[in-house]
Design a protein around this nucleic acid. Structure first.
Lengths: 343, 343
DNA sequence: CTGTTAGCGCCTTCAT
DNA sequence: ATGAAGGCGCTAACAG
C-alpha cells in the first residue's frame, strides 16, 4: 500500500495549468497572473507537494566549483582541514561539485588580497582563512559584489560582505581558557604566562583578551606575566618558555594561544615541572593528545577541523543554490578536550 | 571553457559496450563476462567516472521511511531530538524520505521489545533509544535478520545486531566528570555525592563507573557518599540532595548523573552553598545554562541532541542505500560545557 | 501570460 | 552475455 508521491505534474493537473507554470510559481519567476499564482500555491499547499531534489538537480544540470584559500606553511590544524576536504572529493564530485585548494601567505595582506582577487573569479564560491585587514576586506567585498559567494573560515573579517563565518568565537575560547586555568589552580597564588603567535592576528588577540578578562576579574590569586610572541615557532616558543620557567619559581600556568605547542611542551617537560604547571593549548593533534595523556597538558581547546571543512562545503553549496544555510547546524563551538574525552 | 562531466554513456562508448553493461559492472551485477568487467572497470578508472547521484536517485525512484522509537515521558533532551527530527522533515521529504516517531516506555523491556517488533516492519530502518536487556536484544536481532536496519540512539545494546550506535561513550563521560570534579576541587578534601536516575540504566551505571574510577584513583582527597537513585525526578532528587547537604558540612561536589537537575540545583541554591559546592550535570538546557551563568553548576556534559538526530538520519539513509556510514563524521563526542563556551 | 517539448544521466525491463 | 529503449520528475527553451 504505497502511494506514489506527489509530483509537479499532479499539481499542474489539479490546478488546471501546465507544469511550466507550476515551475514558474514554485521559483517565483515572473510571467504568471496573480490569480494563477495563488491557485497554484494553494494546490501545492493542499497536496503537500515538495519538489524532488534529485530531479531538480538533474534537470538543472549545473555544477559548482569552490575554492579554498588556505595558508601555505601548513600547520597541523590547517592540514587537517585540507585532508578532510580531500576526503570529501569523491562524494562531492558525484554531485558535480569540485574543490580546489589555493595556497597563499595568509599573513601578508597584500598577497592574500591578490590571491582572493585573482583566484576568486574562477569559482562559484570561495572559503578564505582571512586576515582582518582593509586590503583583504576590500578584495572580499569586491568578489561578493561580483556575485561570488565568500565565506570566512577559522578567522573572520566581520565588517566584510562575507556571507558567513565558519569558525569559533575566539573571545569565548579565551574566556574558556581563563576559567579553566582559574578553576584548575584552585585558588593557589602564582603567575600565569601567555604565549601568542602574533598579537596582530585577530584570533590570537581575541583569545588573549577573553582569557585575561576572566582571570583578572575572577581569579585575583593569579598574576599575569607579560605576553610573549613566538610566531607559532617551536624554537622561539621553547626559548620563551624556558625564560618564564627559570625566572618564575611561582609559575603556575601557561597558555599557548597559537601553534608551536611542541616547543612549549618540551620545555615544560625538561624543566621537570610539567605536571605541576597547568598548561592549556589549542587544537587536538597527536602531540597534544600525548601531552594530555602524560599530564603535561591539562586541557586543549579544539575547533574541530573536520566539522569546519564539512560546514564550509555545505554552506557554499547552499549559497550557490540560493538556499539559506542552517545556522544551527553550522554552528562551530569551542570544545574543551581533556584526557578523558579525547576523540 | 567548461567541459561536460563524464557520464555513463561516455564510459560505454570508450569501452565499446552499452550503457546497460556499464551499469551492471558499476553495481557488481551478474551477467557480464570477466573480460568485459575488467575492460569497463579500467575505462571507469581511466576517465575518473563517478555516477551522478541525482540521476541515480531519480532513476531508482525509491523512497525510504524511518522510525524513531523514543521514550514517551519526554525529558528535555529527548524532546530536543524529536524537535530536531521535525525540523529536518521538509528537507527529507524533498528527498523522498519520511520520518515517524514512535513513543514507548523505554524502561520496560517487554513494552519496548513489543514496540520494536510491531513497529519495525513498517520501516526501512529504525533508530531505537534502547534498554540493554535480553528481550530487547532479541527483538533488535530479529528485525536485523529481517533486513531492517537498526541503529541504537543515545543508549546502546552492544551485543545486538544493531548496525551502528549513535551516542556518546558514557564511561568516558563519567571519567570526564571525575577529572573535572577532581581538578575543580583543587586538592581540598571533602565528600562527593552522586545521584543517578537508576543504576539499572546502562548509561547511568557507566557514567558512575567512569567517574568513581577516576576519582578513586587520582583524587584521594575526595570521599564518596553512597550513590543515590532518584528516578530522574525533581522531587526525589531535591529530597536526596537535601539529605546530602544537611548531613555533610564537608560536601564538596555533587554529580547528577541523569535528569531531574532542577531538583538538585534548587536545593543547592536554597542551602546557600550553591557556589561553594561543585555541581556537574548532564545536558544543555535553558535550566542548566542558567545554572552555569549563576555559578550554581560548574560544568555540564552535553551530547548534542541535534547532532545525534542528524547523525541517525544520515546513518539510516546510508544503510538503506547500502553505503557505509562515515565513522568519523558520525562520531559523537563528550562535550564539556562551561559558562564561557555555552552554545 | 501560458503551454509544448526535449532533455538531464542513470536504471530497468524486455529483447536478442 | 549484451543491447535498445522508455521512463524517473523537473527545468528551460521555444512557441504561441
Amino acid at each position: 500500500m504505497k502511494m506514489a508521491p506527489i509530483a509537479l505534474k499532479d499539481v499542474a493537473r489539479e490546478a488546471g495549468v501546465s507544469t511550466a507554470t507550476v515551475d514558474r510559481v514554485l521559483h517565483g519567476r515572473p510571467g504568471v497572473r496573480e490569480a494563477t499564482v495563488r491557485r497554484v500555491k494553494d494546490t501545492i499547499e493542499r497536496l503537500g507537494f515538495r519538489p524532488n531534489t534529485a530531479a531538480a538537480e538533474l534537470a538543472r544540470g549545473r555544477s559548482a566549483r569552490f575554492g579554498f584559500v588556505m595558508p601555505e606553511n601548513t600547520n597541523a590544524f590547517m592540514e587537517e582541514i585540507v585532508a578532510n576536504l580531500a576526503k570529501m572529493r569523491p562524494m562531492l564530485s558525484a554531485n558535480r561539485i569540485a574543490l580546489d585548494v589555493v595556497g597563499t601567505n595568509v599573513f601578508d595582506p597584500e598577497a592574500l588580497a591578490t590571491t582572493i582577487e585573482t583566484a576568486g573569479p574562477h569559482f562559484d564560491g570561495i572559503a578564505v582563512v582571512a586576515l582582518d585587514h582593509p586590503r583583504v576586506r576590500a578584495s572580499i567585498d569586491e568578489l561578493a559584489e561580483a556575485g561570488i559567494h565568500v565565506v570566512t573560515l577559522v578567522s573572520d573579517v566581520p565588517s566584510s560582505r562575507r556571507a558567513h563565518y565558519i569558525g569559533v568565537d575566539n573571545t569565548a575560547a579565551g574566556r574558556t581558557v581563563g576559567s579553566l586555568i582559574g578553576r584548575f589552580t584552585g585558588g593557589r597564588p602564582g603567575k600565569v604566562a601567555m604565549i601568542a603567535g602574533s598579537l596582530s592576528l585577530r584570533d590570537h588577540a581575541e583569545r588573549l583578551f577573553g582569557m585575561t578578562q576572566v582571570i583578572a576579574a575572577e581569579y585575583p590569586n593569579l598574576q599575569f606575566l607579560p605576553v610573549a610572541q613566538g610566531c607559532d615557532d617551536d624554537g622561539r616558543n621553547a626559548e620563551i618558555t624556558r625564560g618564564f620557567v627559570e625566572q618564575n619559581p611561582d609559575l603556575i600556568a601557561v597558555y599557548n594561544i597559537g601553534a608551536g605547542t611542541a616547543g612549549v611542551g618540551q620545555t615544560l617537560i625538561d624543566s621537570g615541572r610539567a605536571r605541576d604547571i597547568i598548561f592549556v593549548a589549542h587544537d587536538v593533534t597527536p602531540l597534544t593528545q600525548r601531552y594530555l595523556l602524560l599530564g603535561v597538558a591539562d586541557a586543549v581547546i579544539s575547533q574541530n577541523p573536520g566539522r569546519q571543512a564539512r560546514s564550509a562545503v555545505r554552506v557554499l553549496t547552499a549559497l550557490s543554490r540560493n538556499e539559506p544555510p542552517l545556522a544551527e547546524q553550522e554552528y562551530i563551538g569551542v570544545e574543551i578536550v581533556m584526557r578523558d574525552n579525547m576523540p
